[in-house]
C-alpha cells in the first residue's frame, strides 16, 4: 500500500527572457511572476494574489515578441523561450495612458500605489480638460461596517471576484451596466443591508483605491485623524470559531482601527468572516451594538 503524505505536485521549470535577462519559473506561472522573480517591479491594479486574473485594467501590459498587441503580464502564462520587454516605449506609453485615463475619471486621492506609478510614468490626467466625464457617484453609507465610495472605483472587478467565485461565494455585488456607465452594484442598485451581503469585508480588503473602506477608517479620515504613519500591525489568531484565522490588527492610539488577514497564509488567504473582520469592538468595551 502506498502512503501519500501530500498532494502530488510536479514542478517543471520554464525559461523565458525578460528585458534580456534569463528567468526560470515553474510551469503555470505568469509573466508577472517571472518579472517578480527577475526583480522587476510591475504596476498592477486588477491583479490580486488570490484572485483569478481578469486582466481588465491593462496597466501591467508588457511587449511579447511575436504578439501584435501588448499582453497582460498578470494573466499570460509563460511559455518556453518567450521574449518579453517590460520597459519599451510601447509598454511605457500604454501604462502611462491607462493611469492617465483612470486619473481623468476617477478620484484617486487615496490610491497611493497608483499615484506613485502615475508619477513614475508621467501620467497627466489634466490633458483631457476640466469637462472630462467622471464616475460622479455619491458616497454610500448604509451601515456601520463599511462604506462604498464609487467615485473612487476603477472597476477592477476585485471586489466582485472576492465576493464571488474566488473566495466568498456570496455574489452580493456584480458589475452592472455597460461601457463608461458600468458600476459595481447589488441587484437594482439596492442598499447593501437588503442584499445578500454577509459583511465579510473581503471586498474591502482587496479594493485598490479605497473605494470600499471600513467605516472606522472613513470616520477617522472625516475627522482628519487617519494617521497610517502612527499605526502598527499585529498578527494574531481570531478569537471566535476554531478555524484559526490569522488576523492583522491595525492599531492607532492603542485602539484597533481595522482588521485584515495575510494574503499568504494557508488558512485564510486574506479572507475573513464578519466576526473576525468586525467582531473586535468588544476589546474596547464599545458596546454600542444592539
Amino acid at each position: 500500500m502506498t502512503n501519500t503524505m501530500n498532494s502530488p505536485e510536479t514542478e517543471v521549470a520554464v525559461s523565458i527572457s525578460v528585458d534580456g535577462q534569463a528567468v526560470s519559473v515553474p510551469e503555470g506561472s505568469t509573466i508577472l511572476d517571472a518579472c517578480t522573480a527577475a526583480g522587476i517591479d510591475t504596476p498592477t491594479i486588477c491583479y490580486g494574489p488570490n484572485l483569478t486574473p481578469v486582466n481588465a485594467c491593462r496597466v501591467c501590459v508588457v511587449e511579447l515578441e511575436g504578439s501584435r498587441t501588448l499582453v497582460p503580464s498578470c494573466s499570460r502564462e509563460v511559455e518556453p523561450d518567450m521574449v518579453v520587454q517590460t520597459d519599451s516605449d510601447r509598454v511605457k506609453h500604454s501604462r502611462k495612458m491607462v493611469l492617465e485615463f483612470l486619473g481623468s475619471g476617477v478620484d484617486l486621492s487615496q490610491a497611493d500605489d497608483l499615484n506613485a506609478w502615475s508619477e513614475h510614468y508621467g501620467a497627466d490626467p489634466n490633458r483631457y480638460g476640466p469637462d472630462a466625464e467622471t464616475m460622479n457617484e455619491p458616497v454610500k453609507i448604509e451601515d456601520d461596517l463599511y462604506i462604498r465610495d464609487y467615485d473612487k472605483c476603477v472597476l477592477c472587478y476585485k471586489c466582485v471576484s472576492a465576493c464571488g467565485d474566488d473566495a466568498q461565494h456570496t455574489f452580493a455585488i456584480s458589475m452592472t451596466g455597460r461601457g463608461f456607465g458600468a458600476r459595481i452594484a447589488t441587484e437594482f442598485d439596492g442598499v447593501l443591508p437588503d442584499s445578500a451581503c454577509v459583511y465579510c469585508g473581503n471586498c474591502v480588503a482587496v479594493c485598490p483605491t479605497n473605494a470600499l473602506q471600513f467605516k472606522t477608517e472613513f470616520d477617522l479620515r472625516q475627522a482628519a485623524n487617519w494617521r497610517p504613519e502612527d499605526q502598527s500591525v499585529t498578527t494574531t489568531i481570531c478569537s471566535y470559531c476554531g478555524v484559526g484565522c490569522n488576523l492583522e490588527l491595525h492599531t492607532q492610539d492603542e485602539r484597533i482601527v481595522k482588521v485584515t488577514s495575510p494574503d499568504d497564509h494557508s488558512v485564510t488567504w486574506g479572507n475573513l468572516c464578519i466576526k473576525g473582520r468586525f467582531g473586535w469592538q468588544y476589546v474596547h468595551g464599545d458596546s454600542d451594538g444592539d
Partner: peptide, 19 residues
Amino acid sequence: ALDSYNTGVQSGGFNSPIR
C-alpha cells in the same frame, strides 16, 4: 448564526446589519 457567537458576549460588541 453567521454574525454571532455563543452567548453573544463578544459578538454583541458591533452593529451587524444582518443580525
